[in-house]
């Protein structure tokens, strides 16, 4: 399984990536939405993208809309991981095409619960399958 971790904070990228790697994910970081689109355009299409909302250059919501606009990227599950936590913001992100939403602060267990809901929790013992 592959995951793209999009956040302008290096600390947050490192935290999210290390949680996902603990579950057997291969991860790649991106500092904002544009950088993340570059990774997709290069052909590295992940199973999951964890997306911060407020970022320079291109924010998370714009990234979600861009991914949803391209049928080739339909397989990517989009999970917002952000401190934006008003009811209306979550509605907006879901309407733009995000599948799930994790509010910062979160624990590793919260990420695990969401991956289980999304059917994206790799079986503990299964080795990573090269795509």
């Amino acid at each position: 399984m592959r995951a793209l971790v999009i956040d302008d904070s290096r600390a947050m990228r490192r935290i999210v990536a290390s949680i996902l790697e603990g579950f057997g994910y291969e991860t790649r970081p991106a500092g904002h939405g544009r950088e993340a689109l570059d990774v997709l355009e290069e052909g590295w299409v992940p199973d999951l993208a964890c997306i911060d909302w407020n970022m320079p250059v291109m924010d998370g919501l714009q990234f979600v809309s861009a991914v949803r606009a391209n049928p080739a990227w339909r397989q990517v599950t989009l999970m917002m991981v952000t401190t934006e936590s008003e009811h209306g913001q979550i509605v907006k992100a879901l309407a733009a095409g995000a599948h799930e939403y994790v509010i910062k602060p979160f624990t590793a267990d919260a990420i695990a619960d969401k991956l289980s809901l999304l059917g994206l929790m790799p079986a503990a013992s299964s080795p990573g399958v090269p795509a």
């Binding site: 009811h87 979550i90 992100a93 799930e100 994790v102 979160f106 919260a110 969401k114």
Partner: peptide, 20 residues
């Protein structure tokens, strides 16, 4: 709490059935 709704509650259900 925020930490509690983060634990495995699907986001569409959160927005449908909860208010802040």
């Amino acid at each position: 709490s925020q930490l509690e709704v983060n634990r495995g509650l699907p986001a569409p259900m959160l927005v449908r059935h909860f208010s802040r």
